[in-house]
Design a protein around this nucleic acid. Structure first.
Lengths: 330, 330
DNA sequence: ATGAAAGCGCTAACAG
DNA sequence: CTGTTAGCGCTTTCAT
């Protein structure tokens, strides 16, 4: 293994100089800088991560705690995770993967052993048992999701309430008078995860704002369930002409059920989805949607974490703003 | 921070004794063992990961390289990843997450800096550029997927060919004479990923074995595409009475399309899916299926990696055996 | 069955 | 602008 002293010898400088060239923590003459970097390159030097962590008390690793629950839309979780890895790499950090089932013990383990400098926790629930633990850790943390009490924590999430509200407002602006929210499956409501009720309250605020009539339903994504739900809704409410769909798995079936039941989109029924743009653009017709910015959530979480690591102040809660993109379905 | 010398003092022994108690690398009298563990507990001692890695040249971390491609069924990837984390933990290892887009550089980085002791790479393609790099690394690796040349590597995968063959054989045993394979979307075939063609060759071997007539189609998962595909297939081939579906996203739509077109499952058309059991059991009707054992793949990958780390011989390629579970769809 | 002590490779005062 | 040096906390010979 090639070590810092090898590089130092090769470049004709001291080990500390090599270290400083690499870290940029003090100014180095251009000449030696170049020589050192040339030696680093020539010898293929890679600093030993453990040695570095030991000497600097910095591992340059962040922990990411992944959710495992059913009912969560897995591609979104994965996309956020990917964005976090990419974001962390851009700050020269790596990502250690933990699963939620290790619970509080996992947090203590990776924090206590100084494996990680910081922690990102996905899918926090309103009364998450991990909150007090996170508050007590030496390492800073950022949560994805918004618990009931955010004291001492930094939280990131998409503004689901605002998204639903914007969706309703978009429909209202097009003249629709009666709308329905086709929400996530029941199990998501059952858990303490905050996003489902937030969509509902935003939807309700939206219809109140615009003086619309509205109804909220949770939705099992199986095609026949979707068809039954829509049949029922449309039968019960003859005036219903607008749908807000917040259920990624059900989106294709909703469109299909409308098509096969002879309802034209958007002429008979307008549809706004709250889902990743990626999904919205590849349906037929393409869906007017409020994007769930998975990449943005991941990137923001990392940025806040880096701010915390650098002792910059960060807001307690940051919600990403919703944006309606009009496509063929409204 | 509480360190090993603190524990040693508290227990009235030397630091090395504490180390040996914790590692079990030499015999310790029951009395001191107990005292040391009591002190560890009392002081809440956690060995510093970096220090440990530096002194022992072992990080107890494995790298996991995740795929990012479109067309892959994300929940399966996620489930394998989760199984790998869980498996690694059971061997007292953690998992560092890399994304495929870091490519070869990422492998060099984490291996060269001794961040990880071993590497698991998911979704390797036939002529993967990472193969020569992996062969040259000091750390052992296990691949999920089977490249063209497996020399010097350990590979794990599900036996997709055997799965398709078993599915066909199951249908043949029930008296079906003409069958179709509804395969993954075209983009999966386009990439060098080996699993799609393997399913096809297994399917073809299966129909040859049993003297059936058969046809292979790739399938876009959008409900209307599925409906069109099936309509076309059933029109073209009046004798067609059995379907093998290897396309998780399309599964619900296939059943739905059959139902809405008036074909009864299994009376008119029998369906065997190659998909996670979890999916197969929650459709209506429940699907006869060949399970894709994501957990098994992850667990096996970890086991092989640990074998390699402990210099135990491992087979070059291990394929997990397919098992048909008969349910209501055949 | 246990201790003493020499590093592991790097960083960061301290010194010039 | 650069070098010297003292650790960082742990493992592992070598001794006994």
């Amino acid at each position: 293994m090639v070590k810092i002293s090898d590089v130092a010898r090769d470049a004709g400088v001291s080990p500390s100089t090599v270290s400083y060239v690499l870290s940029g923590k003090r100014s180095i003459s251009e000449a030696t800088r170049r020589r050192v970097l040339a030696s680093v390159e020539a010898l293929g030097y890679r600093p030993h991560a453990g040695a570095r962590a030991l000497a600097s008390s910095r591992s340059n690793v962040v922990a990411l705690v992944l959710p495992l629950h059913a009912g969560i839309h897995v591609p979104i979780v994965m996309q956020i995770a990917t964005a976090i890895v990419t974001g962390a790499r851009s700050f020269d950090h790596d990502v250690l993967l933990l699963t939620q089932d290790e619970g509080v013990a996992g947090l203590h383990r990776v924090a206590g052993s100084a494996m990680v400098d910081a922690i990102i926790v996905m899918d926090v629930s309103a009364q998450d048992v991990r909150l007090p633990v996170l508050r007590g850790l030496a390492q800073p943390s950022v949560l994805i999701g918004v618990p009931a009490d955010t004291t001492g924590l930094a939280c990131v999430d998409f503004d689901f309430a605002g998204a639903a509200r914007s969706a309703v407002s978009h429909l209202a602006g097009l003249g629709h008078r009666e709308v329905a929210l086709v929400g996530p499956p029941p199990e998501v409501f059952a858990r303490g995860t905050a996003f489902a009720p937030r969509t509902v309250s935003g939807f309700e605020a939206g219809i109140a704002d615009a003086g619309l009539r509205g109804v909220v339903r949770s939705c099992d994504p199986a095609p026949e369930s979707v068809r039954d739900l829509l049949k029922e809704l449309l039968a019960e409410r003859p005036g219903l002409s607008g749908l807000v769909v917040h259920n990624e798995s059900a989106v294709p079936s909703v469109l299909d059920a409308l098509a096969t039941s002879g309802r034209r989109v958007p002429d008979d029924v307008a549809v706004v989805a709250i889902c990743p743009d990626e999904l919205a653009v590849r349906t037929t017709p393409a869906l007017t949607s409020v994007d769930i910015p998975a990449d943005g959530i991941g990137a923001l979480a990392v940025e806040l974490l880096m701010d915390k690591l650098n002792d910059r102040p960060v807001p307690g809660t940051t919600l990403l703003e919703p944006h309606v993109t009009r496509r063929a379905s409204t």
